[in-house]
């Protein structure tokens, strides 16, 4: 029964938006600690009873859900690096931007950052701008 009425040119496509005014996300306790740390030029992670350190910090240790202690982390290195040429909507950027993930020795997790200069994967990096998003360059 469909062959007669179901021609492609008879099909309808309905345009729709999924809009809300905005979302307001709470950082939570550990998130606040981390963001305040960034403002002061410090990286905080959380140290669990097993000795493992997680960054960014969380309220509870993911492995056993006990509370951990905040520790300061130093000497980040660039673990991953990529170059972005288009924005989220597929428009070509005038100038490509570099983004990467920095990590710390002996800590699990990482932080997404913008990368300036010619830092390569594996290089030690220093933070150029202590604001969000973080901008790093070769140390």
């Amino acid at each position: 029964m469909w062959s007669k009425k179901g021609r492609i040119e008879d099909l309808i496509f309905w345009k729709g938006n999924m809009e809300v005014e905005a979302y307001e996300y709470d950082e939570g306790n550990a998130g606040k600690k981390f963001i305040e740390g960034i403002k002061e030029g410090k990286f905080y992670g959380i140290k669990c009873s097993s000795g493992k350190v997680y960054v960014p910090p969380r309220d509870y240790c993911p492995e056993d859900m006990t509370e951990g202690n905040y520790v300061e982390l130093t000497e980040p290195y660039l673990d991953l690096l990529t170059e972005v040429r288009e924005d989220s909507y597929g428009n070509k950027l005038e100038k490509p931007i570099k983004v990467g993930i920095i990590r710390f020795l002996n800590a699990k997790g990482g932080i997404i950052v913008r990368v300036e200069g010619d830092a390569k994967e594996g290089d030690k990096v220093k933070v150029i701008k202590w604001e969000w998003p973080l901008v790093v360059g070769k140390a």
Partner: peptide, 24 residues
């Protein structure tokens, strides 16, 4: 003002405590 994850953890910890179990 907790994150969704922290809400989950708070409830989970209480449930585990009553059960006498750890997450492991």
């Amino acid at each position: 003002f907790k994150t969704p994850q922290e809400l989950v953890q708070e409830a989970s910890i209480k449930a585990l405590e009553e059960a006498g179990l750890g997450y492991n």
